[in-house]
Write a protein that binds this DNA or RNA. Structure first.
Ligand SMILES: [Mn+2]
Ligand SMILES: [Mn+2]
Ligand SMILES: [Zn+2]
Ligand SMILES: [Zn+2]
Lengths: 147, 147
DNA sequence: TATAAAATTATATTGATTATAAAATTATAA
DNA sequence: TTATAATTTTATAATCAATATAATTTTATA
């Protein structure tokens, strides 16, 4: 039998409301929807991408709200920054230790499972954050290139 | 006998002139000095830090030259970006595969030796760049904090 | 309902980086 | 050497994601 990909559970708005509350964040329609997009779609979007995505469903939303909310989420540590972009922040609501690969062809940001990482020269240091970021091409873009 | 730290060789201006030439980069006083600072001091400076450092010795230098030169060096792939800063680029002329730790106390960026890294889920991908970036506190800053 | 607190909006500001065009320097040809 | 072209550097303006500000709207609570 083939190993099956674990299908990540989709968070309901109620799940998110509880989660925000547990982290001392008051809920609002926008906050719920921004977090929902991050946690369920998992595309590591920029603030602008989140804004454009939500504007379809909630046309009254303003970019400031997205920026404010993301800053709040960072402060409360329920999202992390992804460093694959030169001039823009990308956001991830998945906090477990994993890496990222940005495909330079299609722009998608893929999650990487890190099986093993051993560093030396860190004796006496205290670590708060770790980021592993790759750039490359995904299989689809490689195939397209070689046609 | 204790394992001894390898002392990195210091590059002469002639070394650098040859190196730039090998990479199709014409030399100039500023280009030589910018690369010299990067390769010999190894502090992973920002453009602004390079500008301030060189201005002491070469007061006529302009920030534009530093930005232009760093962009050229990136294009010719003789420097790489270090992603430890939120709003600023840091630069490294050491191209071998290694990681970085930014101390949030003193701001220094340390090099890390990566003994082992094993990723999964990259079958069929092509990788061009890898970055490993940590944030934390260095031993000196930890000691200072605990006094 | 009245009042206070918080969230959202529109707008202006910031600041690192890039773009542009003129001036200075360097390389090459005559 | 002198002329000419190519390159580098400079001063300046422009860009643009992110932040700050203050007014407005919404929500919570008395
Ligand atoms: Mn991720
Ligand atoms: Mn380094
Ligand atoms: Zn792709
Ligand atoms: Zn330190």
């Amino acid at each position: 039998m083939e190993k099956q990909d674990k299908k990540p559970k989709r968070w309901s708005l109620e799940d998110i409301r509880d989660y925000l509350s547990q982290h001392d964040i008051r809920s609002s329609v926008y906050r719920l929807k921004i977090f929902e997009y991050l946690i369920n779609d998992r595309t590591h979007p920029t603030a602008e991408e989140i804004y454009k995505h939500l504007k379809k469903e909630l046309p009254a939303i303003s970019p400031g709200t997205v920026y404010n909310t993301l800053r709040l989420f960072l402060e409360k540590k329920i999202v992390q920054l992804v460093n694959v972009e030169k001039n823009q922040f990308r956001f991830d609501a998945t906090l477990s230790w994993h890496g990222h690969l940005k495909c330079l062809g299609c722009g998608r940001v893929f999650d990487l499972h890190i099986e093993n990482l051993k560093l030396s020269g860190l004796e006496g240091f205290e670590i708060f954050e770790k980021h592993l970021d790759l750039k490359g091409l995904c299989p689809e873009c490689l195939k397209r290139k070689n046609i």
